[in-house]
Amino acid sequence: MTDDTPRGAAPSRRTILRAGSGAAAILPVGAILPLGIPAVHAAERTVRLSYQRSSTLLTVLKARGTLDERLKPLGFAPSWHLFTSVIEPMNAGAVDLHADVADAVPIFTQSAEAPLTFYAREVGAPSAEAIIVPAESPIRTIADLRGRTVGVSRGSGCHFILAAALKNAGLTFADIKPAYLQAPEGLAAFGQGSLDAWVIWDPFLAIAQAKRPVRVLADATGLSSYHRYYLANDRFVAENPRVVAVVYDALQDAGRWVKAEPDAAVALLAPIWGDLAPDIVATVNRRRTYAVTPVVRAELGEQQAIADTFHEAKLIPRKLDATAVKIWQPAPERG
Score class of each variant (00 low, 15 high):
6 P>R: 12
85 S>P: 08
164 A>R: 11
269 L>H: 06
114 A>Y: 09
234 D>G: 01
50 S>L: 08
43 A>V: 13
270 A>R: 05
54 S>C: 06
116 L>V: 09
99 A>G: 07
232 A>L: 02
166 L>G: 03
284 V>G: 01
231 L>R: 02
304 Q>V: 05
2 T>N: 09
275 D>V: 05
282 A>R: 14
186 G>Y: 01
104 A>R: 00
260 A>S: 15
276 L>K: 06
275 D>K: 07
64 R>W: 08
249 D>C: 07
221 T>Q: 10
89 P>W: 10
75 G>E: 03
163 A>L: 05
195 L>F: 01
217 L>M: 05
280 I>R: 10
61 L>Y: 14
55 S>T: 15
270 A>D: 02
129 E>C: 12
204 F>A: 13
117 T>N: 10
66 T>S: 11
256 R>T: 07
274 G>Y: 00
195 L>V: 01
37 I>P: 03
59 T>F: 01
58 L>S: 11
238 A>Y: 01
12 S>H: 09
281 V>D: 08
208 A>Q: 06
323 T>Q: 13
278 P>R: 11
78 P>S: 07
146 R>H: 09
238 A>E: 04
192 Q>N: 07
244 V>C: 01
281 V>C: 07
209 Q>H: 08
117 T>C: 10
100 D>P: 10
99 A>R: 03
30 G>C: 03
155 G>T: 00
247 V>L: 02
310 F>P: 00
326 K>N: 09
118 F>P: 00
161 I>T: 14
84 T>P: 07
172 T>S: 12
321 D>H: 03
43 A>T: 12
44 E>V: 15
295 V>K: 02
110 Q>Y: 09
131 I>R: 10
335 G>E: 15
316 I>H: 00
153 S>G: 05
27 L>M: 03
5 T>N: 14
324 A>L: 03
292 V>W: 13
319 K>F: 04
240 N>D: 00
26 I>L: 14
135 A>H: 12
193 G>Q: 02
316 I>G: 00
136 E>Q: 09
167 K>A: 15
288 R>P: 11
111 S>G: 05
10 A>T: 10
244 V>E: 04
256 R>S: 12
269 L>G: 04
